[in-house]
Amino acid sequence: MINVQKLTKKYGKFTANDNISLHVGAGEFAVLLGPNGAGKSTLIKSICGLLRFQGSIRIGKHDSHTTEAKRILGYLPEMPAPYPMLTVSEHMEFIARAYRLTDWEQDAQRLLERFELADKQKKLGKELSKGMQQKISICCMALPKPQAAILDEPLVGLDPYAIRELKSMLLEWKQEGRAVLVSTHMIESVAENWDTVHIMMQGRVVRSCGRNALAEGESLEQLYFSITGGADAAEDPEARHE
């Protein structure tokens, strides 16, 4: 569903993403891990068409820049940024209209209730706390029922109830056959549901593997530290792999 081929993103001389290829299939819950500055957010923004890049990205059967690709793609940004002067319910209406959705009202209501925003429908974007802004961002992402969802640090700022709801929603999406790619530093938050992990360092994916590729008794966290481990590994990831 999400197919990245030889993606390179440079800022001047600095290479933020270096020849990255990865694939997230339908019904797959993929996790993007890596230390700060590894290039995860850059990769995500490139996939979502927010950055220019070299290489190819396809969402479903479509090039990521096409309207067909955008129609089936959902994105939750790292920093929530609602429209300050639109209310919560107007955000839902705006997304419904922009995506040309039909019969969306009940879905919107369900989402707002699920994330405890139903009683705040008349609140303006600027009046929301950071956590609530994150919730409205989640609702905006979820309303068009994306077939491929990309979430950048989705749990930051959420209360425990919303964390539980978001995790359960992503699990439902996986079971419905949607592709989910989550970038996070909170490894334990994805430990239950992940299918594939892509570990990034210094702009490259240094390890991609499925859950069944883990050694007996090895956890995702242990895998992560075995790859990114100490200072030596951080300086020379290639050497560590060898």
């Binding site: 429209y83 300050p84 002067m85 639109l86 209310t87 319910s89 107007e90 209406e93 705006f94 209209r97 922009a98 040309r100 008349k122 303006l124 600027k126």
Partner: peptide, 23 residues
């Protein structure tokens, strides 16, 4: 800000214009 009238018009790209007008 007092929120009296609510709603966003338009469909597709024009929804952006109507959301700006509302703001």
């Amino acid at each position: 800000v007092r929120v009296a009238k609510t709603g966003v018009g338009g469909i597709g790209a024009s929804a952006i214009f109507y959301s700006h007008i509302r703001e």
